[in-house]
Design a protein around this nucleic acid. Structure first.
Lengths: 194, 194
DNA sequence: CCCCATAAACGAACGTTGTTCGTTTATGGG
DNA sequence: CCCATAAACGAACAACGTTCGTTTATGGGG
């Protein structure tokens, strides 16, 4: 009966927004800039996305899920549990904040700026913590398995990810991160060494 | 030779800003609202503070320092090391984000929104981590003292504080926090029990 | 004690922003 | 081949942080 929403327009908006966010961060990116880069009018963006924040989620959700799945694949190839655990946490605290132009950082920025509606990100966070928890459990010595039977540790890791991502955006790569990784890994699998 | 900046005007601005931030958060607070509440004109705020972000720092810096000093006093009265450690981390992850209308949360929000100039907050973060590190060291068993001789653990605690503060602002108090506290404390002083 | 240079204080304005509105234009089912 | 419908558009709205030009109060020098 009328025009229909076109997948290629939606894709163009998403791609344009991803580039703008990576170039300028969330707050400094404008809907006008995103629309211009996509080759459409400013107001037409709102035909496809309700708000700037929803646009960010549309990019971040699949991005994080892909990152987690990729992390699982990489971890599976590391035989030593201690080494594997270190790689997992290093990915979360070091790689993610810096990856793809600091995208982890940009999402945290967007959440802090626009957010007052937790429900959006809650499902994603739970999913990610569940996967991360399973991953961590595979690195923990048997006698401590019961301590890691729920998602509490993964929750702590993710909360700290928020902090590292924020700091990465404000200051840049942390020089103390290696020491933090050594410490947290030692706290968990030190029994293997002694 | 002319009018001088008046301490009571400056104080009124700070008090007004503190109330506005607590009522509406950082991004939703306006300079106009702060000025009106302080009983002065909008532009006069800029005679006393360079920007909205600097105004936030002027409030947050002494606030955090006072909170840390108060934490030190409270911790000193807890004899049992394990209990003391739990109280310290609980204060950082649970009390701080919620205290004074979520002020810890509001600062993280402000940093994420306006921040591109890490130097401002860097000194404060280092100071806080130094104090926190000393505090934590007093709870750690002797045989693990070398692991806690630097600020790495305090840094992790603060990074996670960022996450908990952010989540408190977006979702509200975490129900899983007790489990996280149990876990992190057990990881550090479990030797005392077994 | 009285100026007056100076800077606080002010109202208006600037340049942006995210978002909405009214209109035009393209299109897919009858 | 229509035409109701919704995509697409340009202009406008309301609100923001910040700046500007002017007015007004004041503290040190005569």
């Amino acid at each position: 009966m009328a025009q229909t929403k076109k997948d290629d327009v939606r894709t163009k908006i998403v791609e344009s927004a991803r580039n703008e966010f990576q170039d300028h961060g969330y707050a400094a990116s404008t809907i006008r800039g995103i629309a211009k880069r996509a080759g459409i009018s400013t107001s037409n963006v709102y035909v496809y996305f309700e708000s700037k924040l929803e646009l960010l989620f549309a990019i971040y959700d699949p991005w994080l899920r892909a990152q987690i799945l990729q992390l699982e694949a990489q971890a599976a190839e590391i035989a030593d549990p201690k080494e594997r655990l270190r790689a997992i946490i290093a990915t979360l605290w070091e790689t993610f904040p810096a990856a793809d132009g600091g995208f982890g950082t940009i999402f945290i920025e967007g959440l802090a700026v626009s957010g007052r509606e937790g429900q959006y990100s809650r499902d994603l966070l739970h999913w990610a913590e569940e996967r991360l928890s399973t991953l961590v459990a595979s690195c923990v010595p048997q006698e401590r398995a019961d301590q890691f039977s729920d998602t509490a540790f993964a929750h702590i890791l993710f909360m700290a990810f928020d902090g590292f991502a924020l700091n990465y955006g404000l200051i840049g790569p942390s020089r103390r991160l290696d020491r933090c990784l050594d410490l947290i890994v030692d706290l968990i699998v030190s029994d293997f060494e002694t």
